[in-house]
Amino acid sequence: MLNFVEKLGAYVLYYVNEAGRMGIFLFFSLLNIIKPPYNKIASVLKQIYVIGSLSVFVIIFTGAFTGMVLGLQGYNTLTKFGAEGLLGSAVALSLIRELGPVLSALMVTGRAGSAICAEIGIMRISEQIDALECMAIDPYKFIMAPKFIAGIISMPLLTALFDVIGIFGGYAVGVGLLGGNAGAFFSSMQSDVEFIDVYMGFVKSVCFGLLIVWLCAAKGYYVHLERKGGFGAEGVSNVTTSAVVLTSVSILVMDYFITSMLI
């Protein structure tokens, strides 16, 4: 019994500790974005390329098929009620308010988040982060701040791309393939999609961009403090898996709370 209590206590303490250091990590990363000397444009652009540009293909692909399946499902469902004219607004609202930000964030987590975690984890175990500190170069300024800026800039752009491609995917299936009315598709979208819908999607995408970089980078940065041992290739592999799972779950949880605040 005492052993159980001891283990439970150690477990709780570990996670309280982890939450604390993740908070400190976020604080210093954000502080180093606004604190001079500012990051060089080149280092931010490089991270935008890594997080944003390299994710474009996967965003286009998933966006297109998400829109297509929405068109397919929406058309068949709305036909039952004689409301196929509302297909455009149904596809657009689903994408702009929910699916665009959430699915883009999940895709970016899988592609760029895991890469961020593994990169920083390897830098930690191979003493590259120690080397930076010894050179009086702040890792938060040098490594983290450009990634945070890039995440916050890239995610809304990727989400916008996802939404646009998704809407055209829905159009291709609902109108091109199933014979829906093209005019009704766009006019329903124009009349039903309001600023608050776009705003909600934008807020979500910015928050998710921050969340992805924060959780994935912090997990990699603290790989050596992981409970189940965080050393070597296996340590980095484990922490990358747990970063992707944690970030994905957090995106869905955060999605609910942002929606409940903005709806």
């Binding site: 830098m123 191979s126 003493e127 590259q128 120690d130 080397a131 500190e133 010894c134 050179m135 009086a136």
Partner: peptide, 14 residues
């Protein structure tokens, strides 16, 4: 730290 140089065990090159 600007007065210090360090050669790490595995060189710790970026």
């Amino acid at each position: 730290r600007t007065k210090i140089g360090v050669l790490f065990q595995n060189a710790a090159l970026f």
